[in-house]
Design a protein around this nucleic acid. Sequence first.
DNA 1: TATTGTTATACTCTATAACTATA
DNA 2: TATAGTTATAGAGTATAACAATA
Lengths: 127, 127
Amino acid sequence: MRRAQLKLFQNLIGRLSAYDLRPAQFSALAIIEQHPGLMQADLAKALAIEPPQVVPLLNKLEERALAVRVRCKPDKRSYGIFLSKTGEALLKELKQIAAQSDQESTSALDSQERDELLRLLRKVYQA
Amino acid sequence: MRRAQLKLFQNLIGRLSAYDLRPAQFSALAIIEQHPGLMQADLAKALAIEPPQVVPLLNKLEERALAVRVRCKPDKRSYGIFLSKTGEALLKELKQIAAQSDQESTSALDSQERDELLRLLRKVYQA
DNA sequence: TATTGTTATACTCTATAACTATA
DNA sequence: TATAGTTATAGAGTATAACAATA
């Protein structure tokens, strides 16, 4: 399991490096898209990382104008996190890159096996 | 894939911690058993880590008398690495622990699915 | 007093360059 | 000069404690 995961990860890291992004940053963009306006604590939980790690990650995304922090009206301690138009466009491109990466890393499998692998993996980690 | 792997790894780390061992040390014991007398560079390659990382790992195993470095006769630069009797006995126990860990981490799968997952993972990383 | 985000810090993992001793 | 092992070091990734602003 570890070796297969490392193989997939290395391939993805290589492809994302052309965008100066890490897998966690790509995941963050995808999560923000699915939950626009979420708070940093929620993003940490969704990424399975600790809140302090979200800070530099989001800073980087904000520097590059891919995402924005918006002060919440009711609770001025927290932010709502949103994708910018640039972020949305880039994410769309990145999803294709990631799909190509998965495809290449699992080129030894036929499409039925790939589906089955995904099904089994989900079953394991969702349990 | 990453999430499933993390789940398995965390379970294994927890179980091995009772023996004050890391997964890589357990793997090292298993590799040494399969290739008695191998050199440190070979062990590094088999573990997919860099040679310098082998040094503290092996030091720890030697301190605990689980493995030994034996100076090679012909080439006095290198060592042959072997398990001690203690190491062999502990490895036997650890293999059962690891099997239990895998079983527990994949308890959502039936035994046929578990076999299939293993087959697909091998196919991915061996490609 | 509790919570959100942040800073500072440390600990692990990993990778690279330089050193030693042999060849 | 080349190689096996080692040392030193630095860079990620990850986790915890403590802090500031707000509730």
